[in-house]
Computed example of a mutant assay.
Amino acid sequence: MTLDERVLVLPGWLGSGPQHWQSRWEALHGFVRVQQSDWEWPLRGDWMAQLEDAVLAAPGPVRLAAHSLGCHLVSAWAAHSRHTARIAGALLVAPPDLERDETPLPVARWRPALRQALPFPARVLYSDDDPFATPEASRGLAADWGAVAESLGARGHLNAESGLGDWPEGVARLAALAAR
């Protein structure tokens, strides 16, 4: 990553607690969390507007570090924004399958998932035993988004409970995203 780039952290439904890799990255690396007005009942349009404001406020290129519903935020925002050229790359970690019957109502309201190709480099990292998406669903989203898909093995939802800690490997994957 270059010195003029800003990394925006995009948590999913309910946000990311203090032990989550996203929160740790903020503390360690100075990455900036995109705050949402309602983490419990996320409205796609509201979340997209917050991301748009954060991208426009950045002084230079932006990288996105999204988790869970934050991955769908990236997809929805990219489908509507005229400022996608500012994005140097997106790390999309553990995107949930919104079509699952068990999807909680606040998240299910984001159906249907927007599945068009992203106009910037992206990598989807997924777990083989994520309770919110099968590996097949994760690979399908990655393919539709034009992203590289990578399994991290059986690690749950790739959150604080997954034991990732400061997750330097994730930072390295974010930094390695190259322009198309």
Rank of each mutant, 00 (worst) to 15 (best):
152 L>Q: 10
117 A>F: 08
71 C>K: 00
20 H>A: 14
111 R>P: 13
48 M>I: 12
53 D>N: 00
70 G>M: 13
119 P>R: 00
121 P>C: 01
9 V>M: 05
164 L>C: 09
68 S>G: 04
79 A>C: 04
38 D>C: 03
52 E>K: 03
75 S>E: 11
63 R>T: 05
107 V>K: 12
16 S>A: 13
141 L>F: 09
69 L>G: 11
116 Q>W: 13
98 L>F: 10
169 E>K: 02
92 L>E: 13
78 A>N: 10
71 C>P: 06
174 L>W: 12
164 L>I: 09
87 I>H: 12
14 L>Q: 15
88 A>W: 07
68 S>R: 04
18 P>Q: 03
171 V>F: 12
123 R>S: 02
171 V>P: 01
170 G>F: 12
149 A>V: 01
32 V>T: 02
143 A>P: 00
4 D>W: 01
167 W>G: 01
140 G>V: 03
152 L>R: 01
56 L>P: 04
30 G>W: 10
107 V>N: 12
47 W>R: 05
176 A>R: 15
96 P>F: 09
5 E>I: 08
7 V>F: 15
109 R>D: 04
109 R>E: 14
74 V>N: 01
3 L>I: 12
62 V>L: 13
141 L>W: 12
124 V>M: 03
135 P>C: 06
9 V>W: 11
17 G>F: 15
176 A>W: 02
133 A>G: 12
75 S>T: 15
136 E>K: 11
157 H>S: 06
98 L>N: 12
17 G>M: 15
16 S>I: 08
72 H>R: 10
172 A>Y: 05
47 W>I: 05
140 G>A: 09
68 S>F: 14
28 L>S: 10
44 R>V: 00
94 A>K: 00
110 W>G: 00
142 A>G: 11
83 H>E: 14
49 A>I: 00
104 P>A: 06
17 G>D: 14
177 L>F: 07
5 E>C: 04
159 N>T: 06
6 R>A: 05
137 A>S: 14
85 A>S: 15
170 G>W: 14
8 L>D: 04
134 T>K: 02
58 A>D: 10
69 L>H: 11
132 F>W: 15
80 H>F: 00
127 S>D: 07
99 E>Q: 05
25 W>E: 00
161 E>R: 14
129 D>Q: 02
173 R>H: 03
43 L>Y: 01
145 W>R: 03
68 S>L: 08
159 N>P: 07
92 L>V: 02
2 T>V: 05
179 A>N: 00
171 V>M: 08
179 A>D: 04
105 L>D: 15
165 G>W: 15
28 L>H: 03
106 P>R: 10
96 P>W: 11
155 R>V: 04
150 E>M: 05
93 V>R: 02
166 D>G: 10
153 G>T: 04
32 V>K: 02
52 E>Q: 05
172 A>W: 06
151 S>R: 05
50 Q>D: 11
90 A>E: 01
56 L>G: 00
48 M>V: 09
49 A>E: 00
126 Y>K: 01
148 V>F: 02
123 R>C: 09
136 E>H: 07
136 E>G: 09
52 E>T: 08
62 V>F: 15
49 A>W: 01
120 F>W: 01
77 W>A: 10
113 A>F: 08
75 S>D: 07
99 E>M: 12
40 E>C: 07
95 P>C: 07
13 W>M: 11
109 R>Q: 07
152 L>D: 08
94 A>D: 02
97 D>F: 13
54 A>C: 05
53 D>M: 01
164 L>S: 14
144 D>F: 13
